[in-house]
Design a protein around this nucleic acid. Structure first.
Lengths: 368, 368
DNA sequence: GTAGACATTCGAATCGATTCGATTCGGTAC
DNA sequence: GTACCGAATCGAATCGATTCGAATGTCTAC
């Protein structure tokens, strides 16, 4: 029935495979001549115990090569494993390549790790069933789509606290939000105010399809990825009919490819500004522009989103919306901590800040 | 006693906090009118059961909002949690910034994730105790130092299979190695063969200290990070007295800073080649050279290590030793899978390949 | 001398499932 | 009609600890 042969339990059934039989707390207690409860206290430290007894227990433990309670049993009894699940939308490698995800993960690990918690990474999609079999105390969804509805039901039933960073809002899931829509509108307005009228956009993936393709009007309807949809809506608030491309992932390669298609056209059809939905994409766009012999911002204005510090991109100061990415992660981590402590935790909303760099300028009057 | 108040269990003791009491498999069995064992089979699927009975159980489960067995209890009984611990040397954020670590993680997750396993990230250091309380079936050490000896003892006693990628060799820990020493020597020889006699190196961190500093002869003795030590030894095999700088982390910023110190000197004291221990560092070195008005490779040869594809570094083709980073991760993942299946798994050794790019050339005869 | 307070220690129940050996039962073969 | 077989189901033990209430022992106070 189960397709996951890798974790087949049968291999585990052999009583002992050459190794000396593992000793348990009960063995230790027996050797030390105390009850199991006392031995437990000797290790956990909560409950009163005389120094002599503890000594005796620890000595017995050393003798039996017993190094402390089995985490599995402990977690069953206590209902706590110290593990926080982080659910990523993408395949793990994609997430790792996105500086914003990394920053959020870092923020999470700062808060969680400090308290001795650990991070369990999971991705939705192929391995989705695993999320239901996972031993974790709380879950953080990182930019996840509605796919999750089922899993969320399960976790809710298990009383597993949940936090969603920039995802769809679900009942009983603490939201850590970013004002993507508004920020994208602010940025678009900035470009508009500079005088640009013919602009294009390069968006992040809008749904599960992972391929670079032209943005179609239908995309807004069918979009499942909240972040990209919101940013696109923000841009459309200023440029209602903006078109462009949808990337397969937030990368400068995709930005490069998209920009080649957008910019390698007759000068009077060429957009005077490109609004990229991420800094990584923006960098690719700039690189493509320069490869085509265009100057940024003289010939084309390029703006990004995120405020990522991009390794190796130093000759420009990108105009972008700076978001508090690490802070988002920390907020999620704190929320989890609070929820696990039995406290309520309010939703949090973060805002972006416009950073005016040197990649946006008024359009140059060409033959138009 | 325990300092980890965050995961305090007390908050969990409240019987039910507004939520309806969680139902268990026993409740389901009772409602369905079957025994617990039968109900278990209805979910797990191994064991024979009539379709009618299964149906009855699933219906009862639905009625009680029971969504499947509690992973904690399951893992206790089966002795398997489906979790593979990945132990990182550094703070998590540092690891995330290193493309080689990311690649290895990706490789691991490819192999592990495919079988339904999950990745639990931990770092040594502050949270070290946690490694002993962690619920995992196997552990992968990613470039870890001898700090771990204690933890390894514990895991060994628990029969937790272990794999170390490029770490110190421990008994009973499968090694996935890279020929760092030899590859570094090959690279140094390449530089030597080009005619360079005055060279400097910029190394990765050699021990727990995380600061940019001058490389001293004592460093080789006290080095605890195997990778950096091996690469340094490789370079010394060709240039026995090579000096230079030790970075705080693999980053182009540190490479930049180190290179400024190395290159901003009188031309006849300036090294004609710089051997960087990572591509990230090499990129920083090249950037610094160019900032000083030096041409690469005309004025200074720069070589790296790793074969990382660096975002935004396109105007040069770095001469470097290419390592199969993702493949290392996959090998580790496979090893874990085999070990968990009860099979033996041999050590694996990977080799690097010299990639000759355009950043290394014979030295130009200056006034020397 | 005895009651009460306090610190230790113990026994047994519990966490929530899985699993193994035994049992039941309908059906087939002779 | 009896013997036997396989499929379905059940009961009870088990995984390895934690925890709570009860029992024991010690010391102080009056």
């Amino acid at each position: 029935m189960s397709t996951t042969t890798l974790w087949d339990v049968s291999a585990n059934n052999q009583p002992h495979r050459g190794h000396p039989a593992r000793s348990t707390l009960a063995d230790v207690a027996r050797l030390a001549g105390v009850s199991g409860s006392t031995a437990s206290i000797a290790f956990s430290g909560d409950g009163s115990i005389s120094a002599a007894t503890r000594e005796k227990v620890l000595k017995a433990a050393a003798e039996l090569n017993y190094y402390g309670p089995d985490p599995r049993a402990k977690s069953l009894r206590q209902g706590r494993s110290g593990i926080v699940g982080v659910v990523l939308e993408d395949r793990i490698i994609h997430s790792f390549r996105d500086p914003m995800t990394i920053a959020a993960l870092d923020g999470i690990s700062q808060e969680i790790g400090e308290g001795g918690g650990m991070l369990l990474l999971t991705a939705t999609g192929v391995g989705e069933p695993s999320i239901q079999t996972a031993v974790f105390d709380a879950a953080i969804f990182l930019g996840c789509s509605p796919h999750l509805a089922g899993s969320i039901t399960v976790m809710r039933q298990r009383n597993v606290p949940m936090v969603a960073i920039e995802g769809q809002h679900f009942d009983g899931v603490v939201a850590v939000d970013l004002d993507n829509r508004k920020a994208a509108a602010v940025m678009a307005q900035h470009v508009y105010d500079l005088g640009h009228r013919l602009v294009a956009t390069v968006t992040l993936p809008l749904d599960a399809r992972r391929e670079l393709r032209a943005l179609t009007p239908a995309d807004l309807e069918t979009a499942t990825t909240a972040v990209s949809r919101d940013r696109l809506e923000g841009a459309r608030a200023v440029y209602p009919s903006v078109t462009g491309f949808v990337t397969s992932t937030s990368s400068s390669d995709d930005g490069f490819a998209a920009a080649l298609l957008l910019l390698d056209v007759a000068p009077d059809a060429r957009p005077t500004a490109i609004i990229a939905q991420s800094d990584l994409i923006a960098v690719g766009v700039i690189r493509a522009a320069e490869a085509l012999g265009l100057l940024v911002p003289h010939d084309v204005t390029v703006v990004g989103f995120d405020g990522a510090r991009i390794e190796g991109f130093t000759h420009h100061d990108l105009t972008t919306m700076v978001q508090p990415a690490t802070e988002k992660g920390r907020a999620a981590g704190r929320a989890v901590t609070e929820l696990l402590a039995g406290e309520a935790s309010p939703d949090v909303a973060f805002t972006c800040r416009l950073h005016v760099g040197d990649t946006a300028a008024p359009p140059t009057a060409v033959a138009r």
